[in-house]
C-alpha cells in the first residue's frame, strides 16, 4: 500500500556512485543543481543531459525506480509549466480569449520542466545511492565549520539521521495499523473530505502513540549508552576520501566549467 514512497530510500547496488564519499556526492549535487539554472542554450541542456545520463547509468539504479519519485512533483511541474507557457510575453503562436501562448513561453515552459525533472533525478541519484547515515555523516563533516558560529552541527545531523531512519519505520507502522483497522471494517477511501478526515482518527491516534513510544524508547536507549551530544565524540568509521573521490571532484569541476563556458560563449 504505502511501499511506493521513494523519498529517502536507499537502493542497494554495487556501483562506483555507491562507493563515493558522501561529501563528494553532496558537492557534485550542489554544482549540478547550480548548473541546471545557468544554461540558456540547447548546448548547455545537452551537456547537462549527458552528465545526468552518465550518472544514472553508473549508479546501476533502474531508471524506472527513479522516475517513480517524480510522481510526487507532477502537480508542481504542471503549475510551473502552465505559468511559463501562458505568462511569457513574446511572439504569439496561439491566442484564445484571454490566453495566449508565445513561442518564448513554449520554450521556457519546456526548459523549466526539464530543469525540475533533472533537479529531482539528480538529487535522487544521491539519496538512492547513499544510506541515510552516510548522508548525514557527510553533511555533518562538510558543515563542521559552522560550529564556529555556534550552530550545533552534530545535533542537527543526529536529528536528521533519526528522522530519516524513522521514515520507513513509521511508514511500515502506518501500513500495519491501517491493515488492522481495515480488518475491523474501517474504510479509509470513500466519503467526502470531512468524513475521510474523521475516518483517519483510528489510524492517527495509534500512530501518534506509537511514535511517542518509539521516541521515548530511543531516547532511553541513547542515554543508556551515554550519549551526550557531539562534544568529544569520535567516529568508528571516519569518512575518508579516496582516489575515486578526487577523480569525481575533477570531473564535476570540468563539467561545471563546461557549463559556464557554454553559457558565456553560446
Amino acid at each position: 500500500m504505502l511501499r511506493d514512497i521513494t523519498i529517502g530510500q536507499y537502493y542497494p547496488a554495487d556501483s562506483v556512485i555507491h562507493k563515493l564519499d558522501p561529501r563528494t556526492k553532496l558537492f557534485a549535487t550542489l554544482l549540478f543543481v547550480i548548473s541546471l539554472f545557468t544554461f540558456r542554450s540547447w548546448a548547455g541542456l545537452a551537456l547537462a543531459t549527458v552528465f545526468l545520463a552518465v550518472l544514472i547509468r553508473l549508479s546501476k539504479v533502474p531508471l524506472r525506480y527513479m522516475v517513480k519519485g517524480l510522481r510526487a512533483i507532477v502537480v508542481i511541474l504542471l503549475i510551473t509549466a502552465l505559468f511559463n507557457l501562458f505568462l511569457t510575453p513574446g511572439k504569439v503562436l496561439v491566442e484564445w480569449w484571454i490566453f495566449s501562448i508565445s513561442y518564448e513561453g513554449l520554450i521556457s515552459a519546456g526548459k523549466m520542466t526539464v530543469r525540475l525533472i533533472f533537479l529531482i533525478l539528480g538529487t535522487s541519484v544521491v539519496t538512492l545511492t547513499t544510506t541515510p547515515n552516510a548522508l548525514t555523516d557527510g553533511l555533518e563533516k562538510a558543515l563542521r565549520p559552522l560550529n564556529a558560529i555556534r550552530i550545533p552541527v552534530h545535533e542537527v545531523a543526529m536529528m536528521m539521521s533519526i528522522a530519516l531512519r524513522f521514515i520507513p519505520i513509521l511508514v511500515e507502522e502506518t501500513d500495519k495499523i491501517m491493515k488492522a483497522q481495515i480488518a475491523r471494517g474501517a474504510d479509509f477511501e470513500s466519503g467526502n473530505l470531512i468524513k475521510k478526515a474523521k475516518n483517519m482518527v483510528p489510524l492517527l491516534v495509534p500512530l501518534f502513540i506509537s511514535a511517542f513510544r518509539r521516541a521515548n524508547d530511543l531516547a532511553l536507549a541513547m542515554e543508556a549508552r551515554c550519549y551526550h551530544g557531539g562534544k568529544g565524540r569520535t567516529k568508528m568509521k571516519p569518512l575518508q576520501y579516496r582516489r575515486r573521490d578526487a577523480v569525481v571532484y575533477g570531473l564535476v569541476l570540468v563539467y561545471f566549467a563546461g557549463m559556464i563556458a557554454v553559457r558565456i560563449l553560446l
Binding site: K176, I177, K179, A180, Q181, I182, A183, R184, G185, D187, V201, P202, V205, P206, I209, S210
Partner: peptide, 20 residues
C-alpha cells in the same frame, strides 16, 4: 471484501497497538 473481513476476523500481532 468488507463483509468478508467481518466473517474472517484477523487479530494482528500486538493488537493492543491499534486501540484508539
Amino acid at each position: 471484501l468488507q463483509k468478508l473481513r467481518g466473517k474472517v476476523g484477523l487479530v494482528f500481532q500486538y493488537p493492543e497497538h491499534q486501540l484508539f
